[in-house]
Nucleic acid binder design. Structure first.
Length: 469
RNA sequence: GGAGAGGUGGCAGAGCGGUUGAAUGCGCCGGAUUCGAAAUCCGGUUGGGCCUUCGGGUCCACGGGGGUUCGAAUCCCCCCCUCUCCGCCA
C-alpha cells in the first residue's frame, strides 16, 4: 500500500507510476474521496469535541437526576424531569449531526480504501520503461565451462537434447496421466527418482540458505485468511490466482485461501508488530507447497512441469530497516545467493531486469533469473527445440509497500521502545522452485546415451547415486 | 464435534453506564538522595488519523465489526482468538 500522505503531496509521481505499470487505478477519484472524507471527518470531530465537553459538564448531573426521578414524589417529579429533558436537548442535537456526518464518511470509505489498495508502488527511476515481459533487459548471463551460447546444446555437447518430457517419460520420473486423473490438467505425480531429485534440490537449496547464508529456517501456513493475502499485497489484484477453501459454504465463519508462495507466510509472521531495529535485518527461508490457479494461462505451457497448479518452493525474504541503500544492497545479495546456487549446480542462466510493465503492483524493482532450458523455444528444421530461457527465480524489492499493508514497523527497542516508528522494507526472492527447476536440471545433465547425471551437490541427498537410467 | 471460562496499556491485574486513555503493582525512562550502587522519594512511560500560525489543537482505539444510549471498557448482536474438560484423530 502506498502512503496516502505522499500521494496528496505529489500525486503526479503516483499517476506516472501507475501509467508506467499499465495500471488503470483512478487516482483522481481517490484524491477526491480523500478530500471529502477529511472534510467530513473534521466537521464530525469538532462536533464530537463539543459533545464530549457537554457530557463531562452535565453527564454526572443527568445520572443523578434520573436516579432521583425514580424515587421522587409525584410533586417533585415534573421539575426533575424538566431539568433532565433540558440537559439532554443539546447533546441530543449534536448526536444527530454527528450521525449524519458519519453516514457520509461511511459512504466514501469503502470506495476510498478499495482504490487505495490498487494504487501500485511507483517503479524506481532506474527501472527501464516497457509494457510487457518482451521489454525486459538482460543484465548478464553465466554458463559453466564448455557451454557455448552460440552453439547451443548440440554444439556444446555433441548430441541432440531430449526435452524434459521425453526424459521424464522414458526414465519414469513423472506420471502425468495419473496426476491428471486425480487432479485435472496441470497436475502430475513425481515418481521414484523423479520425486527423489525433487526432494534433493529442495533440501539442497534450503540448507544452502540456512548453513551458508545465515537465513532462519521457518515453516509457515500455506492455507491462510484473506487478510493475510491482502496484507502481503497479493489481494485484491491476484484474487483469481488463488484457490479458495470455501469454509463459509459449510457454515464456518471464514473462508481460507491456499498461498501461491511461502512469501505470504514469511511476511505475515510479524504483521502488526514493532520490530527492534537492532534485530534487523530479519532473514527467513521456508520451503512450502505453492498453489496457483493459473487463471488466464489457458493453453500456455500446457505440457510438462513448467506451469503447474501445485509445486514446492524454497523462498527467501529479508525484512530490513527503511533505508534505500540497505534495501538495494540486500536485493543484490539475494540475487547473488541464487547465482551461487545455480553456479554450484552448473546451470546456465541470465539475469533479467524487468521493465516497468512487468513489475506487478508491489514492486519498485524486480530482477528475474532465467535458466536455460534446452527443450524449450523455437523448433529447428528437424522439428527439435532449439532451447530458450525459462523463468526460474524472481527477486523483488518493495520498499515499505508491503510492510505498510502488514503494519510491520520498527524502532529502537521494538514494542517497548520509545520514539517514532517507521515501516520496514521488505524483499523476496526464489531460492529454488521445483519441479520447474527439474527442467533445466534434467535437460542440461542428460547424456548422449539417454541417461541423466545427478549433479554433484545433489548426490548426498539421493543416497549417493550419480546417474538416472 | 459437545460443554464451559475468558480476551483491558510492555507484563500482571482492577473497573461492569457518567470528568476512565483507563486504579494498583511490576517493568522501563528521567530527577532527587549517594563517593558510587542498592533501597527510598518525586516525575514520566500506548499506538494511530486529521488540522496547525509548529506553540499546539482534536478525534479514534479496552480482540474485530455492528447496535442501544445524551453518554459504552462497562448493556445487546455477529465474528475472531485463547484456555479447561469430553469425544475424535496424524
Amino acid at each position: 500500500m502506498i502512503d496516502l500522505r505522499q500521494l496528496r503531496e505529489d500525486p503526479d509521481r503516483f499517476r506516472r507510476g501507475a501509467r508506467l505499470k499499465g495500471s488503470d487505478c483512478d487516482i483522481d477519484r481517490l484524491l477526491e474521496l480523500d478530500t471529502q472524507k477529511r472534510s467530513y471527518q473534521q466537521d464530525a470531530e469538532r462536533l464530537r469535541a463539543e459533545q464530549k465537553s457537554l457530557a463531562k459538564s452535565s453527564g454526572p448531573r443527568m445520572g443523578q437526576l434520573s436516579g432521583q426521578i425514580k424515587s421522587a414524589s409525584d410533586a417533585d417529579r415534573p421539575a426533575l424531569e424538566a431539568e433532565l429533558a433540558d440537559l439532554r436537548a443539546a447533546p441530543a442535537r449534536l448526536k444527530d449531526q454527528i450521525q449524519e456526518l458519519e453516514a457520509r464518511i461511511n459512504e466514501v470509505e469503502p470506495e476510498l480504501s478499495a482504490i487505495l489498495l490498487t494504487v501500485p508502488q511507483p517503479p524506481d527511476d532506474d527501472v527501464p520503461e516497457g509494457s510487457s515481459a518482451d521489454d525486459n533487459v538482460e543484465i548478464s548471463r553465466w554458463a559453466p565451462d564448455g557451454w557455448d551460447w552460440d552453439a547451443g546444446f548440440k554444439g556444446s555437447k555433441g548430441f541432440d537434447p531430449q526435452t524434459h518430457l521425453e526424459l521424464c517419460e522414458r526414465l519414469g520420473l513423472v506420471d502425468f496421466p495419473r496426476g491428471v486423473k486425480m487432479a485435472g490438467s496441470r497436475s502430475y505425480v513425481l515418481t521414484g527418482l523423479g520425486m527423489r531429485l525433487h526432494q534433493a534440490i529442495l533440501r539442497y537449496a534450503f540448507d544452502f540458505m540456512v548453513q551458508h547464508n545465515g537465513f532462519t529456517p521457518m515453516s509457515v501456513p500455506v492455507i491462510v485468511r484473506e487478510e493475510a493475502m491482502t496484507a502481503t499485497g497479493f489481494f485484491p489484484g491476484g484474487r483469481d490466482q488463488a484457490y479458495l477453501v470455501s469454509e463459509t459454504a459449510r457454515g464456518a465463519g471464514q473462508d481460507l485461501f491456499l498461498t501461491g508462495t511461502g512469501e505470504v507466510g514469511l511476511m505475515g509472521l510479524h504483521q502488526d508488530e514493532i520490530l527492534d531495529t537492532a534485530r534487523l535485518p530479519l532473514r527467513y527461508v521456508t520451503v512450502s507447497p505453492c498453489f496457483r490457479r493459473e487463471a488466464g494461462a489457458a493453453g500456455k505451457d500446457t505440457a510438462g512441469l513448467y506451469r503447474i497448479h501445485q509445486f514446492d518452493k524454497v523462498e527467501q525474504v529479508v525484512i530490513c530497516a527503511p533505508d534505500e541503500a540497505e534495501s538495494r544492497a540486500w536485493h543484490k545479495k539475494m540475487i547473488g545467493y541464487v547465482e551461487d546456487l545455480l553456479r554450484s549446480l552448473e546451470l546456465p542462466y541470465r539475469l533479467l531486469q524487468c521493465c516497468t510493465g512487468d513489475l506487478g503492483a508491489k514492486n519498485a524493482d524486480m530482477v528475474d533469473i532465467e535458466s536455460w532450458m534446452p527443450g524449450r523455444g523455437e523448433l529447428d528444421a528437424g522439428g527439435r527445440p532449439t532451447g530458450d530461457f525459462g523463468e526460474t527465480h524472481s527477486a523483488s524489492r518493495l520498499y515499505d509497500y508491503q510492510c505498510r499493508r502488514l503494519n510491520m514497523r520498527c524502532r529502537e527497542g521494538g514494542e517497548t521502545g520509545k520514539g517514532a516508528t517507521a515501516f520496514c522494507h521488505s524483499l523476496n526472492n526464489t531460492v529454488a522452485a521445483s519441479p520447474r527447476i527439474l527442467i533445466p536440471l534434467l535437460e542440461m545433465y542428460q547424456n548422449a546415451d539417454g541417461t541423466v547425471t545427478i549433479p554433484e551437490p545433489l548426490r548426498p541427498h539421493m543416497g549417493g547415486i550419480d546417474r538416472i537410467g
